[in-house]
Amino acid sequence: MTPGGHTPSVAVWKFASCDGCQLSILDCEEELLALATTVRMAHFTEMSSAEVEGPYDLSLVEGSITTAADAARIREVRQASRRLVTIGACATAGGIQGLRNFAAAGQYAGTVYAHPEYLVSLETSTPIADHVAVDFELHGCPVDRRQLLEVITAFVAGRRPAVPGHSVCQQCKERGNVCVLVAHGTPCLGPVTRTGCGALCPAVGRGCFGCFGPAATTNTAALSAGLVAEGSSPLDVARLFRTFNAGAPAFRDEADARGGAVPVSLRTQTRQGGRR
């Protein structure tokens, strides 16, 4: 309950996405019962088919806008929501499906689907904030369940969420991870990526994939120059930036600067004789 005694209602909405972010709520196993008594889940189809009509105190929105119908639906969601929080790379940056923004119209659909003529979709995948006002953006692919709980509990308590904007590097050092970039020469996006995942990949010797998108301040050009100096090709570097958060401005512009506007994945497929 909020300090005022009212149990806030929460609605979870899906747009173009894989459901992984909203499943992070169900992943809060230990806290789930307490959460269920703190807020009223009014609309959450991954959990229950029961639906309560709006308005809702808090809407958690997953997914990007890829159809005209969804572009209209997000406005309805906004109207029915006191607070609207976007969760995940799709909702905050357009997601992996945002790669089509860098290709010619229909290029991806023609590569992936046998009968693209059955598809009805927009030519772009865009973040929610391009369409409606957003009160808070929670990044990640998927979002971190602890951060998601923090956002919900901060909302209930009426305080700002404690979600830092600094780099993954600082979490690596907190954990005692040895830097894979400096000690192994492994390309890593950690220095320009927002913390939140717990520095998962460097903890197992992998470079950061940038799942949480750009940190609050970034210098992607200097990191790219360093990676190229260590032996990565500009195309390799462009590919690093062009994944789940390809549409986030800092990553988008850096990939453009290193690899041009053609989507790296399509170009590779074509070069390798992939299906057209």
Partner: peptide, 22 residues
């Protein structure tokens, strides 16, 4: 200071960096 779902308040101190915007 953060709260959890039960309303418990926790004050946590973490390393910070003057390179953070915050």
């Amino acid at each position: 200071d953060t709260t959890d779902v039960t309303g418990e308040v926790r004050r946590t101190r973490t390393w910070a960096s003057c390179f953070d915007l915050d």
